[in-house]
Amino acid sequence: MRFDWIDTLPFWPDQISDHAATVDTIMVAFSFVMVLFVAPIFVLMAFFAFKYRRGSKADRMGRPRSLPWLEATWALVPLVVMMVFFYQAARAYFDMHDEMENALRIEVIGKQWMWKTQHPNGKRQINQLNVPVGVPVVLNMISQDVIHSMYLPALRIKQDVLPHRYTKLRFVATETGTFHLTCAEYCGTLHSRMGGSLVVMEREAYDAWVEEAPDAVAPVERGRRLFTEAGCRGCHAEDAPVEAPLLDGLYGSAVPLAGGGSVEADDNYLRTAILRPNAHVVAGFDPIMPSFRQQLDEAQILDLIAYIQALPTGGREQGEGR
């Protein structure tokens, strides 16, 4: 069930996704139920205060001291009704965390006090996020300094952006237009200036817009160059003089760890492996890799991850001499 009339209410924000409509429906239905629970309190309080005002002739015989059935009723009935909302809202919350098929992945870096976004072909924006309508979008976000929070009110979603690991925000916008994009976690002096706009475009318009980027270099390509320049190739190659794990097909696989267990090689694993190599040492290898914390910034780490992600399973990349 969904209330379609909600976004015609006064003071109601733009609503541009199915998730937003679900949230609004829960909000309005919940408010309505709340009024049902609260109204008796206010009405009875006023009524009792008047009827039983001091000196009134009302009958006061047979005052109950306590009624267990009544206590149980007003404790449990609201709780049971609340559980319906708990369930619906939890489901919507889980849905927004579910992975989506064929999502358009956009990298987001937050820093005091701006948002940088990067599209798959390397096109970059500042304080603006252009996305196509009707297409699943996943924002892969990280902060360069303090905690920020990506807040897109028209979609009814936000996610804190942390300085030490990637967090994700997933959505499908269903209406075109320009909407607010802002930072919701206090981040210092110009916190209230750390915002911009979310621009939802028709698909063709987005495709044309994103192609219009003469200087853009795809992250995979930048990562490929960086892999050599930063010295990664010196060890992570078949002909390298040092024993280091090969990275082909690594992304998304399960990595066996020294000391037992394994960990999935996702974005956060790769980032940690580059910055704090000894956090998860791969089984069968010595912990000899140095940290690259001083050499790489967040954008470069994203490039490297994009490159590693593109390495094919069980073979070397085409045209790539090792």
Binding site: L44, F48, Y52, R53, P64
Partner: peptide
């Protein structure tokens, strides 16, 4: 944490309903 937060509302609700019921058959002075 969401479920526990719903639960913690129950004792608060009990108090409010009991205060309202306390006015019933009282000698109320405003």
């Amino acid at each position: 944490f969401s479920a526990m937060s719903f639960l913690v509302a129950v004792p608060s609700a009990i108090k409010v309903y009991n205060w309202t019921a306390t006015l019933y058959k009282g000698q109320v002075t405003i």
